[in-house]
Computed example of a mutant assay.
Amino acid sequence: MRPFIYEQPTDISAAVALASNFTTRDDQPTRANAQFIAGGTNLADYMKLGVAEPNRLLDLNRLEEQKLRQIRVTEDGIRFGALVRMGEAADHREVKERYPVVADSLRLAASGQIRNMASLAGNVLQRTRCEYFRETSWACNKRVPGSGCAAMDGFNRQHAVLGGSEACIATYHGDFAQALIALDAVVHVEGSRGARKIPFAKLHRQPGDTPHIETDLAADEIVTAIEVPALPWARRSLYLKIRDRESYAFALASAAVALDLDGETVREARIALGGVATVPWRASVAEDALQGKKLDEASAGAAADAAFAEAQPHQHNAFKIELGKRTLVRALLETRDMKV
Rank of each mutant, 00 (worst) to 15 (best):
M1I: 07
F4H: 13
F4L: 13
E7W: 01
Q8R: 15
P9V: 12
V16A: 03
V16E: 00
T23E: 00
G39S: 04
N42Q: 08
D45L: 07
A52K: 09
E53I: 10
P54N: 07
L60N: 04
K67C: 05
Q70V: 01
Q70F: 02
D76R: 11
I78S: 09
G81M: 08
A82E: 03
R85W: 04
E88C: 06
E88W: 05
Y99N: 06
L108A: 08
G112A: 04
G112E: 14
L125I: 09
R127C: 05
W138G: 00
V144D: 06
S147N: 09
C149S: 13
D153M: 11
G154W: 04
Q158D: 13
V161S: 08
L162M: 06
L162V: 02
G164T: 04
T171K: 05
F176N: 02
L180D: 02
L180V: 01
I181F: 10
V186Q: 12
G191F: 05
G194H: 07
I198K: 04
A201T: 11
K202A: 14
L203H: 02
R205D: 00
L217H: 05
A218G: 13
A218Y: 01
E227L: 10
P229R: 09
P229W: 08
P229K: 09
A230W: 06
R235Q: 14
R236F: 10
L240R: 13
K241H: 11
D244E: 15
A249M: 12
F250C: 07
L252H: 10
A253F: 05
A253C: 12
S254R: 10
A258I: 01
D262R: 09
R267M: 11
A269W: 01
R270P: 02
L273R: 06
G274E: 07
V285Y: 03
V285C: 12
A289E: 14
A289D: 06
Q291K: 15
G292S: 12
D296N: 15
E297R: 15
E297V: 14
S299K: 09
A311G: 13
P313M: 02
H314Q: 13
K320V: 02
L332C: 09
L333T: 04
M338V: 02
